[in-house]
Design a protein around this nucleic acid. Structure first.
Length: 877
DNA sequence: GTCTTGCATGGGT
DNA sequence: AACCCATGCAAGA
């Protein structure tokens, strides 16, 4: 809405006046733009004296009478918006009567202003008791009328028709309640501010020149009525209820009757925290509810958020058609398998049924006539069953409707009311990907987060993220954009994510954070079915790990925010969950990524700009068709890969570059490392832990169910099948080779330091009775002193390991630690290398006081401190 | 044997 | 712990 004052000669802002201002303009009310309306002397005087409406709107619609004193108050424009308060049950009361007759007490049913705005300006707080002058002095509050309509939210059963042509708004079935209008006014103020605050372009029900919406037909606004007026802006943060108001208002204003209905139910999906607070069930609905037919729960505040109607403009438009009918969305229900099944019974949420549907005392219920969006009428049997001293409401006979609409589990039906006749309208919505506004709700509730059908549940910081995928590729092939910051904000580092195979997440879609029950398409509480979903897999990952899965959306430069010490990239566009890649630079200096095939684990080079979804496979290598098959060799040599991996935070592996088959060995060791990670029960917060089901074994992600490799079949205890001494597999050959290399090195070092070491030993023997030799002896016996030089895993059940070793004597125990004397001895003996123990011991002695692991980076790089199935690599790659 | 009806159960909130 | 509600299931038609 643009002001014409920029380009046209300055006129009095009052469109009823439009007098030319010759440098004598006076300040009127403040507009949403922050500017003040420029008024001529006459208008300004009227404004300041509080009779602006009487002077300029006398013949306009919107005049109403105070319910108490009968005084005529113009309720249609912003200028007079503070002269009255809306009564709960309809009607208005002038501010004077309000001040006389009501005690200002907070209404517990309403959210405190602090929930809506952290700090309300004093003038806003006082609006409920300020008189016109004070308001005029401080400047009227544009958009304050908007909450007037929202006030109707307090009458969920009373869709309000504001017939501006007559200036009367009718509260259908209303009756005056005891709520203090002042209290409500307080709320209105707050909500008004909220609405106003949420509007970036601030459309208001009222024109800024003080003309009510109704005037748009009567007298074009200075702003031009080329744009449809709306109760609130169609801001990008607008919630559906706002859209509804907008839509309806703009749609109907062409007729003689301008009807606006804003049910509280329309405040269904609060898009922001602020709006959420405002629209929370606890915030509205109770006080104004008037249900005369029986004593039943009333108000949306009693409905669970999942039943709040999340109606869209389109749907509303479809519902309302071209009529002047007022649509009041009541509630919605996501169809469960039972609902959509052939039984033909749609279970209605109890509260919804009791609040919005006719009261029934007989379990047989009553026939319910509903109308679909096409106008076709349906008759369902609305009834209930006694259930645990309660009732279970169902709609029977919905099969024709379900079939007609081709609804399935996960789809949503929306119950609305069509006024003025109160006819029920049953809309439906196919299960779709999620809307952006839903993310906030979940974030704010701390509830599970669903990415399409992904659930993210907050856990304590440091806990692991539990992620379930229906299958390995579904989550990956379906790009699941998420906003890191959003997630992080809610999840606080870690969360649990469930992604099901029927996820429909699409690029650009955001997480469904509120309709958790839609995530399976099987309805809520579908644990049974979820568990039965064999393709479901579970993996656990940390938040940091999840971070690695996010791929920057195209053409988006992320902002980096720090949340609880964790740097998080924040995107304007939804990021994409993708596979972690290794970013590198090729020979030409161009940025490339190395992505690992989900099937063959081979690394493929893709352009730096490429977005590689998780679960990416060679077949998706569009950039290098020659390597788009898993059977094609890897471009990277093992050494190159080794160089890349540490940088990528991947497992640090080193293979023998001379061995052409080292990649396979690499994978074996990789698997060992994975296994080690998996077996490590003492995973710190920063480490990752993947637990997979179905697609992967719990041993290591690379291996598939049924994998019989030595890694997969070996238990954590170290017991079980081991490689035989004669085994020439790549793992064994690599390990053997490593030990040979190690020993050669040690020999060299030993010879170099021999003299010095001998001298030191001699000196130490003389001084301390040869503690180190004693240490060595203790180590050989598996005494606790061993832990002085070994990582913690070494203390793990030494005796058991020894018995295990003896049990598998003659076999290679891959759980050995090359630095551990006993294991080393065992290995060397098993592989026929006899002269090792002493050397290794000497080496250990020589490295006492330092970190033996660090002294042997090469070895630790190969197998880490791999003991008893546990990788004790400090870097935990 | 199939379908309908109504209650019971139990996981989830 | 109480309540909700999705769904199973038995009894009856």
């Amino acid at each position: 809405m643009a002001s014409l004052s920029c380009s046209l000669p300055k006129l009095c802002f009052n469109s009823n006046c439009n007098q030319l201002l010759h440098h004598n303009s006076r300040r009127g009310w403040r507009r949403r733009t922050g500017d003040f309306a420029d008024l001529c002397d006459r208008c300004a005087t009227a404004f300041e004296e509080g009779n602006f409406c009487e002077s300029f709107h006398l013949n306009a619609s919107g005049w109403r009478s105070c319910e108490t004193c009968g005084k005529k108050i113009h309720c249609g424009c912003i200028v007079s918006s503070h002269m009255f308060v809306l009564l709960d049950a309809g009607g208005i009361e002038c501010i004077t009567c309000t001040n006389k007759s009501h005690v200002l007490t907070p209404n517990p049913a309403w959210p405190p202003p602090s929930l809506i705005l952290p700090v309300l300006p004093e003038r806003v707080k006082d609006l409920s008791v300020t008189n016109w002058s004070s308001i005029a002095a401080s400047g009227p509050k544009p958009c304050r009328q908007a909450p007037t309509f929202f006030d109707q939210d307090l009458h969920p059963k009373m869709p309000v028709e504001v017939d501006i042509s007559t200036g009367i708004n009718r509260h259908i079935g209303s009756k005056k309640l005891t709520n203090s209008p002042i209290e409500k006014r307080n709320n209105l103020d707050a909500s008004g501010r909220l609405v106003n605050g949420s509007l970036k372009h601030g459309a208001s029900l009222l024109l800024e020149n003080g003309t009510s919406v109704s005037k748009c037909d009567e007298q074009p606004s200075a702003y031009g009525n080329d744009k449809p007026l709306s109760a609130v802006s169609k801001d990008e943060t607008s919630s559906p209820h706002i859209h509804l108001a907008h839509n309806h208002a703009s749609k109907s204003k062409t007729g003689d009757h301008f009807k606006v209905s804003v049910s509280y139910a329309q405040r269904s999906t609060p898009p922001t925290a602020a709006v959420k607070n405002f629209g929370s069930p606890n915030g509205v609905g109770s006080s104004g509810e008037s249900r005369t037919c029986n004593e039943r729960p009333q108000g949306r505040n009693q409905l669970l958020p999942r039943y709040w109607p999340k109606i869209t403009d389109k749907e509303l438009q479809q519902m309302s058609g071209d009529t002047n009918c007022v649509i009041t969305p009541l509630f919605e229900k996501t169809l469960t398998a039972s609902d959509a099944g052939k039984i033909g019974r749609l279970v209605l949420p109890k509260k919804c049924a009791e609040v919005y549907l006719p009261s029934i005392s007989n379990s047989e219920g009553i026939p319910l006539l509903v109308q679909d969006l096409k106008g076709q009428e349906w008759v369902f049997q609305f009834r209930f069953w006694p259930n645990n001293n309660s009732r279970m409401y169902v709609l029977e006979g919905v099969i024709p409707y379900i079939q007609s609409m081709q609804l399935r589990a996960g789809d949503t039906v929306t119950f609305s009311r069509l006024e003025p006749h109160g006819k029920l309208v049953l809309g439906c919505r196919k299960k779709t990907s999620t809307s952006s506004d839903q993310i906030t709700e979940s974030v704010n509730t701390g509830d599970k987060v669903y990415a399409g059908e992904a659930i993210a549940k907050t856990t304590k910081p440091g806990e692991v993220m539990d992620q379930r995928y229906s299958n390995g590729n579904s989550a990956s092939s379906n790009l699941l954009p998420m906003n890191k910051a959003d997630i992080a904000d809610s999840a606080r580092n870690c969360f649990e994510v469930e992604i099901h195979n029927n996820a429909k997440a699409v690029p650009g879609a955001k997480l469904d954070l509120c309709s958790k029950r839609e995530h399976t398409g099987l309805g809520p509480k579908s644990k049974r079915l979820r568990i039965e979903t064999e393709e479901l897999m579970e993996l656990k990952l940390t938040w940091e790990q999840a971070q690695g899965l996010f791929r920057r959306p195209p053409n988006d430069v992320p902002k980096v925010v720090v949340i609880e010490g964790c740097e998080i990239e924040e995107y304007e566009e939804p990021p994409i969950i993708g596979m972690p890649t290794i970013v590198a630079t090729d020979d030409v200096g161009e940025s490339v990524q190395w992505a690992q095939c989900g099937n063959c684990s081979k690394w493929r080079k893709v352009p730096g700009y490429a977005i590689v979804p998780s679960g990416w496979t060679c077949s998706g290598n569009l950039w290098d068709p020659k390597r788009s098959l898993c059977s094609v060799d890897q471009e990277l040599t093992s050494e190159e890969l080794q160089d890349l991996l540490p940088a990528a935070g991947a497992k640090k592996l080193k293979t023998d570059k001379e061995n052409p088959d080292s990649l396979e060995a690499l994978e074996g060791l990789d698997a060992l490392a994975n296994l080690a990670i998996m077996e490590d029960g003492d995973v710190d917060a920063s480490s990752s832990q993947f637990t997979t089901k179905h697609q992967f074994t719990t041993k290591h992600p690379r291996h598939r169910p049924g994998c019989s490799c030595i890694v997969c079949i070996q238990p954590a205890s170290g017991k079980g099948q081991k490689h035989k001494p004669t085994c020439v597999c790549n793992v064994c050959s690599t390990v053997k080779r490593r030990f040979k290399t190690l020993l050669l090195r040690r020999q060299t070092k030993q010879s170099e330091k021999e003299a010095e070491t001998a001298q030191q030993k001699l000196q130490q023997s003389e001084q301390s009775g040869d503690e180190e030799v004693q240490m060595f002896c203790e180590t050989r016996n598996g005494s606790p002193s061993h832990n002085l030089v070994m990582n913690k895993g070494f203390s793990h059940d030494q005796s058991k390991k020894k018995s295990s070793n003896s049990h598998f004597e003659g076999q290679i125990d891959l759980n050995i630690h090359p630095e551990r004397d006993g294991d080393l001895s065992s290995l060397l003996n098993s592989v026929g290398i006899t002269r090792t123990l002493q050397d290794a011991t000497q080496q250990k002695i020589s490295s006492l006081g330092g970190n033996s692991t660090n002294s042997q980076p090469h070895l630790s790089g190969v197998v880490g401190n791999y003991s008893n199935g546990v990788l004790h690599d400090g870097s935990r790659h």
